[in-house]
Amino acid sequence: MEVTMTHYLVLAALLFLTGMTGFIVRRNAIVMLMCVELMLAATNIVFAVFARAHADGGGHVFILMNFAIAAAEAAIGLAILVEIYRRRRTVNVDDLKALME
């Protein structure tokens, strides 16, 4: 079977939906961050597919930028989580209720 553009797009869609479902279902903050990373990875696949389809370099530049930004986001997220864990001894988002009223 020949692998076409559609296959890659379906893979990306499945990855994106997996990340989205995981984000909504799971309550562990670290897993939620990982799910966001999955969604960003799915986007990278879409960019790569279209960059190839249009024979244009713009999509590849997008992917490189996306790597950097996803890494920065994970770093900031984990830093804030460590601060929360020190005080609360939990990373379950249902227990983060200081702001609920």
Partner: peptide
């Protein structure tokens, strides 16, 4: 918590 909620 505000920062984390905003980030996620």
């Amino acid at each position: 918590e505000a920062g984390f909620k905003y980030l996620v």
